[in-house]
Amino acid sequence: VEVSPDIYQQVRDELKRASVSQAVFARVAFNRTQGLLSEILRKEEDPRTASQSLLVNLRAMQNFLNLPEVERDRIYQ
């Protein structure tokens, strides 16, 4: 799965849209901590040159964001 270069903005938009914390998003989207998500968003590494471990996390976030909005909102509950 190709990771979109605007994945970082997509995540920020989703945090605002759903009014969820980084901690909640990190847990449900890719089963990691708020600290890691914060670092990923701060660095904004180009997905095309990202490490394998970062790509795994970015893909998981993208797959989560590809779910229908209704389903994502249900998962946040």
Rank of each mutant, 00 (worst) to 15 (best):
V1L: 06
V1Y: 02
V1W: 03
V1A: 08
E2N: 15
E2T: 08
V3P: 07
V3Y: 04
V3C: 05
V3H: 05
V3D: 06
V3M: 14
S4A: 06
S4M: 12
S4Y: 14
S4Q: 07
S4K: 07
S4N: 15
S4P: 08
P5Y: 05
D6N: 11
D6F: 03
I7F: 08
I7S: 02
Y8M: 03
Y8D: 02
Y8K: 01
Y8E: 01
Q9N: 15
Q9W: 09
Q9A: 08
Q9H: 14
Q9V: 14
Q9M: 10
Q9R: 14
Q9E: 15
Q10R: 14
Q10N: 12
Q10P: 01
Q10C: 07
Q10D: 07
Q10G: 07
Q10A: 14
Q10Y: 09
V11K: 02
V11Y: 00
V11E: 00
V11F: 01
V11G: 00
V11W: 01
V11I: 14
V11A: 06
V11Q: 03
V11S: 00
R12S: 13
R12A: 03
R12T: 10
R12W: 15
D13W: 14
D13M: 14
D13L: 15
D13N: 15
D13K: 15
D13R: 15
D13F: 09
D13T: 15
D13A: 15
E14V: 02
E14N: 01
E14L: 00
L15T: 03
L15K: 00
L15N: 00
L15H: 03
L15M: 14
K16N: 09
K16C: 15
R17Y: 01
R17S: 01
R17C: 01
R17E: 00
R17F: 00
R17T: 02
R17D: 00
A18Q: 06
A18N: 14
A18T: 13
S19L: 13
S19F: 11
S19G: 13
S19M: 13
S19T: 14
V20P: 00
V20G: 02
S21Y: 03
S21C: 06
Q22P: 11
Q22K: 11
Q22E: 13
A23F: 13
A23Q: 13
A23P: 07
A23L: 11
A23H: 13
A23M: 08
V24W: 04
F25C: 00
F25T: 01
F25A: 02
F25I: 01
F25W: 10
F25S: 02
F25L: 05
F25R: 00
F25G: 01
F25N: 00
A26K: 03
A26W: 00
A26H: 02
A26F: 03
A26M: 03
A26N: 04
A26C: 05
R27D: 15
R27Q: 15
R27V: 07
R27L: 11
V28G: 14
V28H: 04
V28W: 03
V28Q: 05
V28L: 09
V28E: 05
V28A: 10
A29N: 00
A29K: 01
A29M: 06
F30T: 04
F30W: 03
F30R: 02
F30H: 01
F30Q: 03
F30D: 04
N31C: 08
N31A: 09
N31P: 06
N31K: 15
R32M: 10
R32G: 14
R32F: 12
R32H: 14
R32I: 06
T33W: 04
T33E: 14
T33N: 06
T33L: 03
T33A: 09
Q34V: 06
Q34R: 12
Q34Y: 08
Q34D: 14
Q34N: 08
Q34S: 09
G35P: 10
G35S: 15
G35Q: 15
G35Y: 11
G35V: 10
L36R: 15
L36G: 04
L36A: 04
L36E: 15
L37S: 03
L37W: 03
L37H: 02
L37T: 03
L37G: 03
L37R: 01
S38N: 13
S38F: 06
S38R: 13
S38L: 10
S38Q: 14
E39W: 05
E39S: 10
I40Y: 15
I40R: 01
L41S: 02
L41G: 01
L41T: 02
R42T: 14
R42P: 01
R42H: 07
K43Y: 06
K43A: 13
K43C: 08
K43S: 12
K43F: 05
K43I: 07
K43G: 07
E44H: 06
E44K: 07
E44M: 08
E44T: 07
E44R: 10
E45D: 13
E45Q: 13
E45R: 06
E45F: 05
E45L: 08
E45T: 10
E45I: 12
D46A: 10
D46N: 10
D46V: 05
P47Y: 03
P47R: 02
P47E: 02
R48K: 14
R48F: 06
R48S: 14
R48D: 11
R48A: 12
T49H: 14
T49M: 14
T49E: 08
T49G: 10
A50I: 07
A50Q: 04
A50S: 07
A50G: 09
A50T: 07
S51G: 11
S51P: 13
S51V: 07
S51C: 10
Q52V: 09
Q52K: 09
Q52W: 08
S53N: 08
S53P: 11
S53W: 08
S53M: 07
S53F: 05
S53G: 13
L54I: 05
L54M: 13
L54A: 11
L54T: 14
L55Q: 10
L55H: 07
L55W: 06
L55T: 09
L55F: 08
V56S: 14
V56H: 15
V56L: 13
V56C: 05
V56K: 09
V56T: 13
V56F: 11
V56E: 12
N57I: 13
N57K: 09
N57E: 08
N57Y: 08
N57F: 09
N57L: 09
L58K: 00
L58Q: 01
R59G: 09
R59K: 07
R59S: 11
R59H: 09
R59T: 12
A60F: 06
A60R: 11
A60C: 12
A60I: 08
A60W: 04
A60M: 11
M61N: 02
M61Q: 01
M61A: 06
M61H: 01
Q62K: 13
Q62F: 04
Q62D: 06
N63H: 05
N63C: 14
F64E: 02
F64D: 00
F64N: 02
F64S: 00
F64K: 02
L65Y: 02
L65H: 01
L65W: 00
L65D: 00
L65C: 07
L65Q: 02
L65I: 09
L65K: 00
N66G: 10
N66F: 08
N66H: 12
N66E: 09
N66R: 13
N66W: 09
N66Q: 11
N66V: 08
L67V: 07
L67W: 07
L67A: 07
L67C: 05
L67I: 11
P68M: 05
P68H: 05
P68V: 04
P68D: 10
E69Y: 06
E69D: 09
E69H: 05
E69W: 06
V70P: 14
V70W: 08
V70H: 14
E71P: 00
E71K: 09
E71F: 06
E71V: 05
R72S: 02
R72N: 00
R72T: 02
R72C: 01
D73E: 05
D73F: 05
D73N: 08
R74E: 08
R74W: 06
R74C: 15
R74P: 02
I75V: 10
I75A: 11
I75N: 04
I75S: 12
I75Y: 12
Y76W: 04
Y76E: 00
Q77P: 04
Q77L: 12
Q77K: 07
Q77I: 12
Q77H: 14
